[in-house]
Design a protein around this nucleic acid. Sequence first.
DNA 1: TTTAGCAGTCGATGGATAAGATTGCTAACA
DNA 2: TGTTAGCAATCTTATCCATCGACTGCTAAA
Lengths: 348, 348
Amino acid sequence: MKADKLSERKQKILKAVVDEYINNASPISSGEIKAKYFDDISSATIRNELSALEEMGYLIQPHTSAGRIPSKEAYALYVDRFLDKQPLRKEEIALIENAFKDRFDEIEDIVRRTARVISDVTNYTSVIVLKNINKVVLKEIKLIDLDQHTVLLVIITDSGIIRDKVITLRSDVNLDYVRDANIMLNRIFAGKTISEIKMPDGMIEENMAEFRELYESVIAILESYAESAEDTVYMDGQSKFLEYPEHDLKTTRDFLQIVDTKERLAEIIEDDTDIEFSVRIGKDEKGGIDKCAIVTAKYMLNGKEIGHAGVIGPERMDYSKVMRVLKYITKALGEIADGGNNDKKRID
Amino acid sequence: MKADKLSERKQKILKAVVDEYINNASPISSGEIKAKYFDDISSATIRNELSALEEMGYLIQPHTSAGRIPSKEAYALYVDRFLDKQPLRKEEIALIENAFKDRFDEIEDIVRRTARVISDVTNYTSVIVLKNINKVVLKEIKLIDLDQHTVLLVIITDSGIIRDKVITLRSDVNLDYVRDANIMLNRIFAGKTISEIKMPDGMIEENMAEFRELYESVIAILESYAESAEDTVYMDGQSKFLEYPEHDLKTTRDFLQIVDTKERLAEIIEDDTDIEFSVRIGKDEKGGIDKCAIVTAKYMLNGKEIGHAGVIGPERMDYSKVMRVLKYITKALGEIADGGNNDKKRID
DNA sequence: TTTAGCAGTCGATGGATAAGATTGCTAACA
DNA sequence: TGTTAGCAATCTTATCCATCGACTGCTAAA
């Protein structure tokens, strides 16, 4: 099933079928192709070609008296070789830029907006998976005393992710104690990844004895972060899923189950992480959703890869548009938040 | 349509119809009721009663040769007067207790678990709306210097909610500066609700001049919190929505749209906030989802009302069970995290 | 007031039929 | 050898119709 074996004409016909099916979601007949794409050959000829393409596995006939629809392989080939490279429309670009024109500081805020705008522009459900915190490097730890028995632990990482957690202690704490403990902890943890941090088996160093309870609490929290392999998942535009007629109740059930168990979704999306775009069509051994396609791209922010962003839609997804949008947005965001200056920036 | 006018027998019949419909989702015939609920009267008599109940608006006949199904009014009456008060089953209680047996410190963590367990036990989609932060009282503000131009603002409220936001400044900052600013800001803000805080029209006090930029940033952030009326919404078990046959594609579309626009959901749920349970059946002028019921209860934590928790399901929801579960859980959580000691507690 | 009996109504089911769409095949053609 | 016109075959979809079964509503009697 090498694509190289396809004649020019077969390619043109196959692309025609995919393009038409993406727009109309109904099987395409030889007559339709003849009318819209070919002046010079007859529908009978096209029928022969269609028959050959079906033989090769690129097309499927739902039943004898129906036209053809593309197979998974056709979509894969389409994504690989036939993508139109039309630029994004002005309104689309305006929509994207508008979403990011305000000030914003926190990653969560940026991510939410990104999810929203991806869904708005593509008209598919968007999904963003942020890498688990234990894969990033600790830049600094801050301890803040809240009251006599509680301190707030703030974790700052190299890509700016901030997590905080309240620690409750049996012993009393005061400002000086917390400050000293903070210095001590930073000496130990700064520069390591969370997953590198282990509870030391033997004795705690002499000069740590005073901070033992606090120290153990912090370690326990970091370890629990490391253990909980759950990446954070954001979604938007879930209702868009039902705008596509092939998404019947059964498919929607699968979809909602994926939505519920976000860990599985994160696994699917982070599976092949080394390529720029990941396109998963239909359900296979490695996961996915039947009758659906999942397209994701690396999600860069401030020059760092912080996760993956993409969409979930029907197999006959408008791959071209989705990829252009993802490319545009991830590029825009890769630049937008650099160097600590988070004021508005033009995206050109 | 006063319920008082209903004879004992009518009430028993009406309850029978609702109970049966909750279990089977198909119209109930006079013969069925006779078989399962009455030995002493004939189906003809029951037919007469059914006819009367239909006349009164409590029952609906989908078509002439079908049995009856309950109307919205029947459900409302059912919730009002007919609820079984069977206790929760052992397994259900075990499930709930198990979900909360670990240590946990952060509200978000508790809320997520609560959403999960409500959905698991009831088998409906759960939803929790946390009150907007601007309705709660500021307990303390913490400033932490991150680097030369950025400080982290941590907001601690009376119910323990913590929000943080990074502030970027043009001028340099250092430890002393931040500490002094922190003391100053707490003097001004502590004890107020976020919505009370307003940017002062005239001059900033003399001794604030030094902290002007920081001060204005903090005010701006608090105001933006106050303005953004969005309450935080958590959901779980969305896929459960499709386990009920009356939830067809159209209803699911409505449901997913509500899921997408969580603000609207928050509005619906926070609408009638003064009663212990809110039961909204079907769609009316004030919102809701067609063919669905939304049941919510006040969500207490640590003695404070922090929002609402509930479920979304079909109109023929198992109201009795849902209310028992919500009562049990909100009661359990009202006790579980009191006094800063977050260790395991028995729920009895 | 209750009940048995029965006619009437309606949905669901299934078969038969017809119409329409599209293909595959064949044979002729360039 | 590739292309094409023509046509039979196949399958879907819609419609109609008859039948069956499930209830109800009504009537008249208990």
